[in-house]
Design a protein around this nucleic acid. Sequence first.
DNA 1: ATTTTAATGAGACTTTGGTCTCTTTACAAT
DNA 2: ATTGTAAAGAGACCAAAGTCTCATTAAAAT
Lengths: 200, 200
Amino acid sequence: MTERKPSNQELRTRKDLLRAAGRLMKKGCKPTMDEVAAEAMVSRATAYRHFPRLDALLVEAPIDAAVADPVGLFANDPSDDAEARADRAEASLHEVVYQNEAQLRIMLANSIGRDMTDDTLPARQNRRLPLIEAALATSRHRFREDDYQRLCAALALIFGPESMVVFRDVLGFDAETARMVKSWAVRALVRAALEDAKSA
Amino acid sequence: MTERKPSNQELRTRKDLLRAAGRLMKKGCKPTMDEVAAEAMVSRATAYRHFPRLDALLVEAPIDAAVADPVGLFANDPSDDAEARADRAEASLHEVVYQNEAQLRIMLANSIGRDMTDDTLPARQNRRLPLIEAALATSRHRFREDDYQRLCAALALIFGPESMVVFRDVLGFDAETARMVKSWAVRALVRAALEDAKSA
DNA sequence: ATTTTAATGAGACTTTGGTCTCTTTACAAT
DNA sequence: ATTGTAAAGAGACCAAAGTCTCATTAAAAT
């Protein structure tokens, strides 16, 4: 237990660095540690003290567009139409992803390319599973537990920024076309999982 | 038309560089240009002459595991069970992807993170669509054209190395679990597309 | 108010990606 | 065999990532 409560000052500069990085990444190109430090009005050495690698900074940099809040999105929606809710969740994440394409690409590239034998880097944060689970919450009782887990995993392939990369770089689709395909796929998968439950 | 036939010498050193890069990447970590040049027994300057950026070299580096050949895989299989064929195609690509995980991660990171306003880098090559189309070839007549295109796009989300990244980095799944989820999802999507055709 | 401690600032230093120039070698045509 | 041309080699050079040390400032404790 070597836990130590970080001082206010530490938290403040840490936050400043993250916000600075986010601001610079919105402009579309990978910022330099010097640039981030300058933008945060902080010495370069200090930046490295808080984030030993530039990657760590970029991965944690906040998406300042309001990220879809799983709780908020379905707060006043007691519906149990799993298909519609999952689709709506995807639509909401879709917006965030395509609004922050440049920033997310940088994040993705840095987290994918990390040396796999190196566990000093922070794991990727996972915003999509809470969202998926919130969407399926009102109808979870209709799934077998295994089917539910499998469905969540399959939906995770569709929900994140990785699908944007496939659509844009591999297929050459624009955001709207991508959204249509995803909408269809999400509904098809939810329906299939429900079918599985019935026929079991 | 400033096309110029490259000399034998050029082709030889180019090939040597690519093979050297592939050899080094199999060891799992991104090689430096010096290392590649040394491995290819070539001067660093020469390496840069053939590949102006290290990225370009790594992206083009060959996956020496036999890449799933769409034609070969279904050469002696006249079956028109779209579900089974799509699943089998995915299984085959799954093997290649997980066998070459390290190398593919480097490739992916480099192609994702490229500056989008920069078109000097080679576009991503697309191995998955031919594979998907070969799988669906014998049953293509059962789909409406729009449904077919949509299905191919949806399957492309599941087939490539991007899904490996989601499974490993986001969900923490191993290769076998990933394969099971993908198998289910692929079959569910194909089935859904066929249903759409029937109810139209 | 003074002392102690932890965070910051400043800057030297190393490695790697990438560019550039100049020289040397290999190839091909005659 | 000689000569013109294009590729390869050698090395200087710059920018950015990352590490280190030491001085300076701000916060906290007494």
